[in-house]
């Protein structure tokens, strides 16, 4: 096979070439096959064990009836899907507001001029408070508190104030992510912009932010995913969205299967979104290397 390799004595080169290439490739294939086999066998045995052992538990029949009830699932799932549209709507109007307000907070925390110190102080305190309080507490306080002021319709709507609570909480997290991005841009970029005579604001707008926002996109994707789930918390102050609807069904049928349906709906959205965020992050890592 290596007759056309003319280096060294024919016998020696043949031996070296054969050993180094083919043997190594074969060994790699063998190793890969072996690890696939091990992974398959261990996965199957774990699932088999669950499949055999769980139904042997004494309460399995009852659990199966009240959590994995196909009849109830079939009856409730379409309505649950419909209720999920409300979650999507709340998400859709909250997310852009969070992106904007979070960016404003990040810029306020980055303000360097002494005249703007109050702004910086405000943003710092704001972020401390809203990241320090559980989201559900913010939702209760704002969602019940502000309509309690006796505002006229429609300004007492839990949709408005629930969304406001989500925006206030989440923008604090998003602001910190933006800020990390802004700080990750190397000082030499600022120096280059400065040396060209660009103002502080122009430097931020044209040089720093475009790079920073792109760099923290995966991290903010993760914030969005967790927002998608936390929209369900608004159910505690009134809106009949997915979680609330599932709760209504649970009481009506005295059965937990609707909750399982709700979980499946959330997963159908969050799993693809998580994979997308992961692939974004992997791509960025690759680019930076």
């Amino acid at each position: 096979m290596s007759k056309d390799m003319q280096t060294g004595t024919p016998a020696a080169s043949e031996k070296v070439a054969g050993f180094s290439k083919q043997a190594r490739q074969q060994r790699e294939i063998r190793l890969r096959r072996r690890s696939t086999l091990i992974a398959t066998v261990s996965t199957i045995s774990v699932f088999l064990a669950i499949y055999i052992l769980v139904p042997m538990a004494p309460g399995w029949e009852k659990v199966q009836h009240s959590f994995f009830n196909w009849e109830i699932f079939e009856k409730t799932f379409p309505t649950l899907l419909n209720a999920f549209l409300l979650d999507i709507a709340i998400f859709a109007w909250s997310a852009p507001l969070i992106a904007i307000w979070g960016l404003a907070l990040a810029l306020a925390r980055d303000a360097r001029s002494p005249a703007l110190f109050p702004l910086r102080l405000f943003a710092t305190v704001y972020n401390d408070i809203f990241r320090g309080v559980p989201v559900i507490l913010t939702i209760y306080l704002i969602g019940f508190g502000i309509p309690g002021l006796g505002l006229p319709r429609p300004w007492n709507s839990p949709y408005i104030w629930g969304s406001v609570a989500l925006v206030l909480s989440y923008s604090a997290y998003v602001a910190e992510v933006y800020r990390a991005g802004i700080e990750s841009i190397h000082e030499s970029q600022r120096a280059a912009a400065k040396s060209l005579g660009l103002s502080h604001w122009d430097t931020m707008r044209f040089i720093i932010l475009p790079q920073a926002v792109r760099r923290v996109l995966p991290a903010n994707m993760n914030n969005l995913i967790s927002l998608q789930k936390d929209v369900a918390l608004l159910s505690f102050i009134g809106p009949v969205e997915l979680l609330r609807q599932a709760g209504v069904f649970k009481s009506f049928y005295a059965n937990f299967t609707p909750y399982l349906g709700a979980a499946l709906i959330f997963l159908a959205v969050t799993i693809p979104a998580t994979r997308f965020a992961d692939s974004l992050m992997a791509r960025q890592d690759k680019e930076r290397r």
Partner: peptide, 25 residues
């Protein structure tokens, strides 16, 4: 001033790199 490490703006093409400051300033 020109720096040792170039310090070009990586998110713009080189024409935009050159035109930004004259346009803004």
């Amino acid at each position: 001033i020109v720096f040792q490490s170039f310090n070009l703006f990586p998110h713009m093409n080189v024409m935009e790199n050159v035109m930004l400051a004259p346009r803004r300033v």
